[in-house]
Design a protein around this nucleic acid. Structure first.
Length: 288
DNA sequence: CTCTATGTTTAATT
DNA sequence: GAATTAAACATAGA
């Protein structure tokens, strides 16, 4: 499920289902997901509390309880939240259930996660993973000047840096893959070698991707969730819709990466032994 | 059986 | 040290 837009949709759902609502009972069934917290402690520390609000930074959710405790939720790769009837049977892959009472009506809010890469952590202070997040590109917008400074001192590939949650909180593999294609930038380009113009293109395309995804998710809600509206993600081997070159796939920063070797330009710092800091060069990739 | 997967962390290697 | 890469985590589906 999860990149920033999915998590924002989850936040809105949880806000609707939980805000101002009393938690009658909480059940967790997976210490791996709750990071060692026992089901008994989780239930004890959340029971009878009212939820103040549900906030989000990047891909993290924070359910704030009235006594200062808070539940951090990360959806990992396959996590999702859903509302069920009070008496509904355990869902497939259900890992936690909050039983809540709103105006006398009892219902269940369940966390479902087949792969169990997600997290559900009940604590009394903000966790480091939350505090160390960079600016949220949806809530804070993308400050191109600031982003440029972050990129300038890094030699890692641009795709790797854009997925770094301390640089921008919430960008994931799909959105970055798509945005770099729109911006016509090769994902292997050195982050610090992008020109001002390329930098602006990256910022603009990231924002557009976020908004487009969010719009799509708002609309086609419970309908199919399959990979539908991506232009190049999942389309390696097919012709590039812009230039017709066969789309390439490679592993970059540990993640499957699709790109067009025909129209995504690679920016790289000149690393010749003659000058330590020469101007960036732009190279056109050869077709495969 | 093999390969891939919307994420993050940690160990190993360069 | 910094940077990069591979592996690990658990499980499903093609």
């Amino acid at each position: 499920m999860p990149e920033l837009p999915d998590v924002e949709i989850a936040r809105r759902d949880l806000q609707r289902w939980l805000s101002g609502v009393r938690i009658a009972a909480a059940r967790t069934t997976d210490r791996y997901i709750s990071r060692g917290t026992s089901p008994a402690a989780f239930a004890r520390d959340s029971a009878q509390q009212k939820v103040k609000q549900v906030s989000r930074r990047g891909k993290w959710l924070r359910i704030e309880l009235e006594d200062g405790a808070r539940i951090f939720s990360h959806l990992g790769m396959t996590g999702s939240w859903a509302r069920v009837g009070a008496e509904d049977a355990r869902q497939r892959w259900e890992r936690a259930r909050l039983t809540v009472v709103q105006r006398g009506v009892t219902s269940g809010v369940v966390y479902i996660d087949s792969r169990r890469f997600g997290r559900l952590i009940l604590v009394r202070e903000d966790i480091a993973e939350w505090r160390e997040l960079g600016p949220d590109p949806l809530a804070d917008g993308i400050d191109v000047a600031r982003l440029g400074k972050e990129l300038a001192r890094r030699r890692r590939a641009i795709k790797d840096v854009l997925m770094d949650q301390s640089v921008l909180a919430g960008m994931g593999n799909i959105l970055v893959t798509e945005a770099l294609w729109h911006a016509r930038i090769d994902p292997r380009s050195q982050a610090g070698a992008l020109s001002k113009k390329e930098l602006r293109a990256v910022g603009r395309e990231l924002s557009k991707e976020l908004e487009r995804e969010l719009r799509d998710k708002e609309r086609e809600r419970p309908t199919r969730e399959g990979e539908g509206n991506f232009i190049i993600y999942g389309h390696a081997g097919e012709p590039c819709p812009r230039c017709g070159t066969t789309l390439s796939r490679m592993v970059l920063a540990g993640r499957g990466t699709v790109f067009c070797a025909g129209c995504q330009v690679r920016a790289e710092a000149q690393s010749s032994s003659i000058g330590p800091k020469s101007s960036p060069e732009r190279t056109k990739n050869a077709s495969p």
